[in-house]
Each structure stands twice: as C-alpha cells, then as structure tokens.
Design a protein around this nucleic acid. Structure first.
Ligand SMILES: [Zn+2]
Ligand SMILES: [Zn+2]
Ligand SMILES: [Zn+2]
Ligand SMILES: [Zn+2]
Lengths: 147, 147
DNA sequence: TGTCCAAATGAGTATCATTCTCAATTCGAC
DNA sequence: GTCGAATTGAGAATGATACTCATTTGGACA
C-alpha cells in the first residue's frame, strides 16, 4: 500500500468524491481501497496513527458513517460484533463458518445482475447492499461427525 | 420445566428441531416464529420474563448462538450495533435508509433461486444467508435537495 | 494582515449490547 | 438416593461505538 507516487488521491477519483469529501474522508477511503480487504474502525485509526493523516477515533467513526451515507463505504458485522468496512465499489461478499468463524471471500457477487423491482424500492434511492452466507466449514463438519 | 406432555411445542415441529433442541431453545424459536418480525436478544429476554419459560439473559444469548450454529436462526445488525434475530425459514430482507434508519421489508428474496457454485463453497455446508439493501428514503432525499 | 464565526476535531467519558465467571441447580444414569 | 456432568443465571467484565465539550482550524471579510 505504500504508495502510489505521492498522488494522495487516486486517479480513479470521481467527481462525486471530489465534490463531497473532505481531506480526512478521502484518506479513509484511500486507506480502505489500498488495503484490499475490510478494516475495522479501530484498524483504520491504528493504521493512520503516526502518519500525516492520523486522526482521532471519534473522527474515524464520524467519517465512516458519512461515507456510508454517501454510499461509498459499506460495513458488515462479524459474529463478534466488530464492524468491518469496505469500499462499495469492491462488490465482495463472504462465506462464514458459524462454528469457528473462518471466512472465505466469494469471487463474484451473486446479486451482480439481479435487479430489484422499482415497486419494491418505494422511492428509495439504492446505494449498496450487503450479502453474507453462513455455513459449516469442512473441518468443523469433521469435528461434529466424530467428536 | 413444567411439562412436556402438554405439547407446548408447535405442530410444525421438524425432526431436526426435535432431535437437536432442548426445551429452552425451542421456546426461543417459537417466540421468534410467533412474533412475525425480528427480535433482539433483549426483546426475547423481556418477552419471556414472567412466563413459565423465562430465562436469564446469558442463557438467551447462549441459545441464540446455538440456534444460529444449527442454521435455524439468523441475525442482522442494525447500524446501532443491536442484533436482530429471525428464523431462517422466514426468508425476509430489508431496505434501510442510511440517513434516518427507516426500514422497509422486502416482499421477496432476490436470492431465492440463485445458486452458489459448488466450487465457490469450498466444502462448506451452506446454512443461510443475510442480504440487506441500503439507500436513501424519499423524505431524506427531499431534505437533502432543499435544506 | 487581524478579527470573527462556524465547522471540524479529539481526549476523555458514557453507553449498552453482549460475553464471561463461577457458584448453585438440575439432569441422567446407575 | 447418589454422584458427576451439563445447564443455568446474577452480576461483573468487556469492548466497540457514540457522545461531550473545550480547543483548533479555516475561510470570509475588513
Ligand atoms: Zn469452522
Ligand atoms: Zn454484491
Ligand atoms: Zn431516511
Ligand atoms: Zn434470502
């Protein structure tokens, strides 16, 4: 993640992002995009500490909420209750073991081309979705069969 | 606890349910099915208090976890962090406003007939899924347009 | 450049759902 | 009835997130 040539805000920066985000929000989004995987609020706070873009924990959570409200970031909750954040542009979901908690990323989003009926939307402007699968992983299946 | 001859457990009781659940777990599941909508752990504890099926909060959460591990119950987390539980047999999902939090139940599950590729499952035994949509409700759209 | 106000910030504190601890109780087998 | 194992629940601990409020920042304006 180190760096992309000093260009703080990436090239794929959208007009939306430019017009609506302040510097700290952009840094959070950059961090999430660069990480390549989900991060918790605490993770983000820890990663930015010491860098020129460090910010307080309260600010991290405040901006994560706003990024969600703009549809740029989505979060899911682990069974532990911890919330993990990811950019919505990365349309990834997971398969999680209800027993040991092991998590497996899915390569494609099964909702990719499924459309919600406009009548179901009831006027809502759709921003993003969360989709998670739960099951029992192979090793937990074995443990259950022969304990 | 009181009696079981009296058939407190409903007629739709499946073999799975009979063989794997104890009395308290069945009462929790019955309560969730009877409610017709999602309930939090606190809700369940409050509803059962005073009835012959009352149980401690710790027990409620313990059994909710086990019901999830058996694939009989699923939960989703509100932005507030509160977890809401529902029976997996009720395949319902929601559309939630990221601004005011208003929630709209969807009538049908868009994943209903979408199948996950076996190769994606990597040996997992699939139990259930969670799917939630997020957007901006009509009244919050208005407020944003003309503040 | 100096003054002003509104918005943004963050250290510390509060909240609150969930989990943990462990002594007491219940269950089941003999 | 007795004994060990499993279940239970009251209360305390945990931990992520939200809140408070005094301070800082930033830009408009003179
Ligand atoms: Zn597992
Ligand atoms: Zn998706
Ligand atoms: Zn709204
Ligand atoms: Zn569904």
């Amino acid at each position: 993640m180190a760096s992309k040539a000093a260009v703080p805000l990436s090239q794929n920066e959208s007009p939306l992002k430019q017009s609506l985000l302040n510097a700290k929000q952009s840094h959070l989004l950059d961090q999430l995009q660069a990480a390549g995987h989900e991060l918790s609020g605490q993770d983000l706070h820890a990663r930015l500490r010491g860098t020129p873009h460090g910010m307080g924990l309260a600010t991290v959570y405040r901006h994560l909420r706003q990024l969600q409200q703009r549809g740029l970031v989505r979060c899911r909750h682990l069974p532990s209750g911890e919330a993990l954040y990811a950019p919505t542009e990365r349309d990834e979901h997971h398969l999680t073991c209800v027993d040991c908690g092991r998590t497996l990323p899915l390569r494609v989003c099964p909702m990719h081309d499924v459309q919600l009926q406009p009548q179901q939307l009831d006027g809502f402007q759709l921003l993003f979705h969360t989709l998670e699968f739960f099951g029992i992983c192979p090793s937990c299946q074995d443990r259950q069969d022969a304990p």
